[in-house]
């Protein structure tokens, strides 16, 4: 599938991935993060059930201490 991940085009082998699978594939390893799919926030408890499919626009933000 083709998705947009953080404003860049990404080609992934799978036709569909859960949020947790996508995070693993793309090496997002931080504990604290925020995910939006097509503009909607995905709650952490839904990371194993919510899916990303062809054409989706995904934003992943690592939350980093400091400020």
């Amino acid at each position: 599938m083709e998705i947009i991940l953080n404003n860049r085009n990404e080609s992934l082998e799978a036709d569909q991935l859960t949020i947790n699978e996508l995070l693993a594939v793309k090496n997002f390893t931080f504990k604290m993060l925020v995910v939006k799919v097509n503009g909607e926030l995905v709650r952490r408890r839904d990371f194993d059930s919510a899916t990303v499919k062809d054409g989706d626009d995904v934003m992943v933000l690592h939350l980093i201490t400091g400020g």
Binding site: L63, G66, G67
Partner: peptide, 26 residues
């Protein structure tokens, strides 16, 4: 980071379309 996550989730789920400007990584 925990507080950043809290306010982002709060504004995105309960206060839309309020703009939120966050600072991450400095």
């Amino acid at each position: 980071a925990e507080m950043k996550q809290m306010i982002i989730e709060t504004v995105l789920t309960k206060m839309q379309p309020k703009p939120l400007v966050v600072g991450v990584g400095m």
